[in-house]
Amino acid sequence: MTNHQNRPSTVNLAFTGASGAQYGLRLLQCLVSAGCRVNVMVSRAAQVVIATETDLKLPGTPPAMQETLSAYAGAEPGQVLVFGREDWFAPPASGSGERAPLVVCPCSTGTLSALATGASNNLIERAGDVALKERRPLILVPREAPFSEVHLENMLKLTRMGAVIMPASPGFYHKPQSVEDLVDFIVARILDHLNLPQDLMPRWGEARAEDKRMG
Protein backbone atom coordinates (compact mmCIF):
# COMPACT_ATOMS: atom_id res chain seq x y z
CA MET A 1 0.00 0.00 0.00
CA THR A 2 1.17 3.52 -0.72
CA ASN A 3 1.31 6.32 1.83
CA HIS A 4 -0.85 9.15 0.55
CA GLN A 5 1.02 11.73 2.62
CA ASN A 6 4.30 10.99 0.86
CA ARG A 7 3.01 11.04 -2.69
CA PRO A 8 4.71 13.71 -4.79
CA SER A 9 2.47 16.29 -6.43
CA THR A 10 5.27 17.18 -8.89
CA VAL A 11 7.83 14.94 -10.56
CA ASN A 12 10.84 16.09 -12.58
CA LEU A 13 11.35 13.81 -15.59
CA ALA A 14 14.40 13.90 -17.84
CA PHE A 15 14.88 12.09 -21.14
CA THR A 16 18.48 11.51 -22.20
CA GLY A 17 20.11 9.81 -25.17
CA ALA A 18 20.02 6.15 -24.12
CA SER A 19 17.86 3.65 -25.94
CA GLY A 20 14.55 2.99 -24.23
CA ALA A 21 12.52 6.12 -24.98
CA GLN A 22 9.38 4.01 -24.55
CA TYR A 23 10.03 3.74 -20.81
CA GLY A 24 10.12 7.49 -20.31
CA LEU A 25 7.12 8.16 -22.52
CA ARG A 26 5.02 5.52 -20.76
CA LEU A 27 6.12 6.92 -17.40
CA LEU A 28 4.99 10.38 -18.50
CA GLN A 29 1.53 9.01 -19.31
CA CYS A 30 1.31 7.30 -15.93
CA LEU A 31 2.46 10.36 -14.00
CA VAL A 32 -0.19 12.44 -15.74
CA SER A 33 -2.84 9.80 -14.99
CA ALA A 34 -1.77 9.89 -11.32
CA GLY A 35 -2.49 13.62 -11.26
CA CYS A 36 1.12 14.78 -10.98
CA ARG A 37 2.49 17.93 -12.51
CA VAL A 38 5.52 16.93 -14.59
CA ASN A 39 8.52 19.13 -15.29
CA VAL A 40 10.07 17.65 -18.43
CA MET A 41 13.62 18.05 -19.72
CA VAL A 42 14.76 16.54 -23.02
CA SER A 43 18.34 16.35 -24.24
CA ARG A 44 19.23 16.75 -27.92
CA ALA A 45 20.27 13.11 -28.12
CA ALA A 46 16.95 12.08 -26.55
CA GLN A 47 15.08 13.84 -29.34
CA VAL A 48 16.98 11.72 -31.86
CA VAL A 49 16.32 8.51 -29.92
CA ILE A 50 12.60 9.26 -29.53
CA ALA A 51 12.30 9.90 -33.27
CA THR A 52 14.20 6.67 -34.01
CA GLU A 53 12.43 4.34 -31.58
CA THR A 54 8.88 5.69 -31.71
CA ASP A 55 6.45 7.39 -34.06
CA LEU A 56 6.56 10.54 -31.92
CA LYS A 57 8.38 13.49 -33.47
CA LEU A 58 9.24 16.20 -30.98
CA PRO A 59 9.47 19.81 -32.21
CA GLY A 60 12.62 21.76 -31.51
CA THR A 61 11.33 24.44 -29.14
CA PRO A 62 10.16 23.88 -25.54
CA PRO A 63 6.68 25.44 -26.08
CA ALA A 64 5.99 23.26 -29.13
CA MET A 65 7.46 20.22 -27.38
CA GLN A 66 5.25 20.92 -24.38
CA GLU A 67 2.17 20.96 -26.58
CA THR A 68 3.14 17.69 -28.26
CA LEU A 69 3.95 15.84 -25.02
CA SER A 70 0.84 17.18 -23.29
CA ALA A 71 -1.33 15.83 -26.08
CA TYR A 72 0.57 12.51 -26.08
CA ALA A 73 0.05 12.04 -22.33
CA GLY A 74 -3.51 13.36 -22.23
CA ALA A 75 -2.50 16.10 -19.80
CA GLU A 76 -4.57 18.95 -18.49
CA PRO A 77 -3.43 22.48 -19.44
CA GLY A 78 -0.30 23.33 -17.47
CA GLN A 79 0.14 19.81 -16.13
CA VAL A 80 3.17 19.06 -18.32
CA LEU A 81 5.83 21.78 -18.48
CA VAL A 82 8.87 21.50 -20.76
CA PHE A 83 12.03 23.44 -19.95
CA GLY A 84 14.93 24.23 -22.25
CA ARG A 85 18.41 22.78 -21.85
CA GLU A 86 19.81 26.00 -20.38
CA ASP A 87 16.75 27.33 -18.57
CA TRP A 88 18.47 28.06 -15.27
CA PHE A 89 15.27 29.61 -13.89
CA ALA A 90 13.39 26.29 -14.17
CA PRO A 91 12.23 24.86 -10.81
CA PRO A 92 14.53 21.78 -11.00
CA ALA A 93 17.60 24.06 -11.30
CA SER A 94 17.64 25.22 -7.68
CA GLY A 95 17.45 23.72 -4.24
CA SER A 96 15.02 26.49 -3.32
CA GLY A 97 12.61 25.25 -5.99
CA GLU A 98 9.78 22.83 -5.28
CA ARG A 99 10.97 19.69 -3.52
CA ALA A 100 10.25 17.10 -6.20
CA PRO A 101 11.84 13.76 -7.11
CA LEU A 102 13.85 13.45 -10.33
CA VAL A 103 13.63 10.48 -12.68
CA VAL A 104 16.10 10.24 -15.59
CA CYS A 105 14.46 7.75 -17.92
CA PRO A 106 16.20 6.58 -19.96
CA CYS A 107 19.54 7.58 -18.49
CA SER A 108 22.55 7.61 -20.79
CA THR A 109 25.96 6.55 -19.50
CA GLY A 110 27.15 10.06 -20.33
CA THR A 111 24.55 11.45 -17.92
CA LEU A 112 25.62 8.90 -15.31
CA SER A 113 29.17 10.19 -15.65
CA ALA A 114 28.11 13.83 -15.43
CA LEU A 115 26.04 13.24 -12.31
CA ALA A 116 28.75 11.17 -10.64
CA THR A 117 31.30 13.95 -11.14
CA GLY A 118 29.06 16.91 -10.33
CA ALA A 119 28.95 18.41 -13.82
CA SER A 120 26.19 20.93 -14.36
CA ASN A 121 26.60 21.83 -18.02
CA ASN A 122 22.88 21.72 -18.81
CA LEU A 123 19.56 21.72 -16.97
CA ILE A 124 19.35 17.92 -16.70
CA GLU A 125 22.79 17.69 -15.10
CA ARG A 126 22.01 20.60 -12.80
CA ALA A 127 18.69 19.02 -11.79
CA GLY A 128 20.54 15.83 -10.87
CA ASP A 129 23.12 17.81 -8.91
CA VAL A 130 20.32 19.55 -7.00
CA ALA A 131 18.57 16.25 -6.25
CA LEU A 132 21.78 14.83 -4.80
CA LYS A 133 22.73 17.85 -2.71
CA GLU A 134 19.20 18.29 -1.37
CA ARG A 135 18.83 14.55 -0.66
CA ARG A 136 15.79 14.33 -2.91
CA PRO A 137 14.71 11.07 -4.55
CA LEU A 138 16.77 10.47 -7.70
CA ILE A 139 15.95 7.48 -9.90
CA LEU A 140 18.25 6.69 -12.82
CA VAL A 141 17.18 4.20 -15.49
CA PRO A 142 20.21 3.21 -17.58
CA ARG A 143 19.78 1.04 -20.65
CA GLU A 144 23.17 -0.19 -21.81
CA ALA A 145 24.82 -3.56 -22.32
CA PRO A 146 27.39 -4.54 -21.35
CA PHE A 147 28.39 -2.09 -18.64
CA SER A 148 32.03 -1.06 -18.60
CA GLU A 149 34.04 -0.65 -15.40
CA VAL A 150 33.56 3.11 -15.76
CA HIS A 151 29.77 2.72 -15.93
CA LEU A 152 29.73 0.41 -12.91
CA GLU A 153 31.97 2.70 -10.88
CA ASN A 154 29.72 5.67 -11.66
CA MET A 155 26.62 3.70 -10.66
CA LEU A 156 28.24 2.60 -7.40
CA LYS A 157 29.29 6.17 -6.66
CA LEU A 158 25.79 7.49 -7.31
CA THR A 159 24.20 4.72 -5.24
CA ARG A 160 26.41 5.69 -2.33
CA MET A 161 25.22 9.28 -2.78
CA GLY A 162 21.61 8.15 -2.42
CA ALA A 163 20.46 7.68 -6.00
CA VAL A 164 18.47 4.61 -7.03
CA ILE A 165 19.92 2.84 -10.05
CA MET A 166 17.13 0.96 -11.83
CA PRO A 167 18.41 -0.60 -15.07
CA ALA A 168 15.77 -1.12 -17.72
CA SER A 169 15.87 -4.89 -17.19
CA PRO A 170 12.28 -6.14 -17.03
CA GLY A 171 11.39 -9.37 -15.27
CA PHE A 172 9.34 -12.18 -16.78
CA TYR A 173 7.52 -13.69 -13.81
CA HIS A 174 4.42 -11.69 -14.74
CA LYS A 175 4.33 -13.61 -18.08
CA PRO A 176 4.50 -10.65 -20.47
CA GLN A 177 2.57 -10.98 -23.69
CA SER A 178 3.87 -7.89 -25.48
CA VAL A 179 6.63 -5.31 -25.58
CA GLU A 180 4.23 -2.98 -23.75
CA ASP A 181 4.07 -5.46 -20.86
CA LEU A 182 7.87 -5.38 -20.59
CA VAL A 183 7.86 -1.58 -20.59
CA ASP A 184 5.12 -1.50 -17.95
CA PHE A 185 7.18 -3.75 -15.66
CA ILE A 186 9.90 -1.11 -15.32
CA VAL A 187 7.46 1.80 -15.18
CA ALA A 188 5.55 0.06 -12.39
CA ARG A 189 8.77 -0.26 -10.37
CA ILE A 190 9.50 3.43 -10.86
CA LEU A 191 5.99 4.37 -9.73
CA ASP A 192 6.40 2.17 -6.66
CA HIS A 193 9.61 3.99 -5.75
CA LEU A 194 7.83 7.32 -6.20
CA ASN A 195 5.09 6.09 -3.85
CA LEU A 196 2.49 6.57 -6.58
CA PRO A 197 -0.41 4.17 -7.18
CA GLN A 198 -0.11 1.84 -10.14
CA ASP A 199 -2.13 -1.01 -11.58
CA LEU A 200 0.26 -1.87 -14.40
CA MET A 201 1.22 -5.13 -12.73
CA PRO A 202 0.55 -6.83 -9.39
CA ARG A 203 3.22 -6.56 -6.73
CA TRP A 204 5.06 -9.72 -5.78
CA GLY A 205 3.01 -11.85 -3.39
CA GLU A 206 -0.25 -9.92 -3.78
CA ALA A 207 -2.05 -12.83 -5.47
CA ARG A 208 -0.86 -15.23 -2.76
CA ALA A 209 -1.97 -12.86 -0.02
CA GLU A 210 -5.39 -12.48 -1.64
CA ASP A 211 -5.76 -16.27 -1.87
CA LYS A 212 -4.98 -16.54 1.85
CA ARG A 213 -7.56 -13.87 2.70
CA MET A 214 -10.22 -15.56 0.58
CA GLY A 215 -9.34 -18.95 2.03
Rank of each mutant, 00 (worst) to 15 (best):
N121G: 15
L156P: 10
Y173H: 03
D192G: 13
S148N: 11
A145P: 05
V187C: 00
Y173M: 05
I165D: 10
V187E: 07
M161L: 15
R189M: 00
K133G: 12
S108Q: 02
C105H: 07
V150L: 15
V179A: 13
P106K: 08
M166W: 06
P137A: 06
I165K: 04
D181Y: 10
K157S: 15
S148M: 08
S113M: 14
N154C: 05
P142V: 08
G110N: 15
A114Q: 12
Q177F: 08
H174I: 09
T109Y: 00
R143V: 05
L132Y: 08
A168H: 03
A116T: 02
R135D: 06
V179S: 06
R189F: 10
A119G: 12
F172H: 14
D129E: 14
M155K: 01
C107T: 07
K133D: 06
E144C: 10
V187R: 02
L112V: 06
I139A: 04
L191N: 04
Y173D: 12
P167F: 09
D181R: 02
E125S: 09
L123R: 12
E153S: 14
P106T: 10
F147A: 11
P106S: 05
P142D: 07
E149T: 15
L158D: 09
A188H: 07
K133R: 15
M155C: 14
I124W: 04
R126P: 03
S108H: 01
C107D: 02
I165C: 01
R135N: 15
S169H: 12
R126F: 05
R160K: 15
E180L: 11
T159Y: 03
L123F: 01
R160V: 11
V104F: 04
G171W: 07
V187F: 02
P137M: 08
E125V: 04
R160W: 00
N122S: 12
I190P: 05
E125L: 12
Y173Q: 10
E134P: 08
V130D: 00
V104D: 07
N122P: 04
D184R: 06
V187H: 01
V104Q: 02
G110A: 15
S108L: 06
S108N: 04
A127V: 05
L112D: 09
G128D: 10
L140A: 07
T109C: 14
P106Y: 07
L140I: 01
A114F: 09
V141Y: 12
L152E: 13
H193N: 15
A116G: 11
L123W: 02
V130F: 04
V179N: 07
D184Y: 07
G128L: 01
E134C: 14
G171T: 03
A116Q: 01
S120E: 14
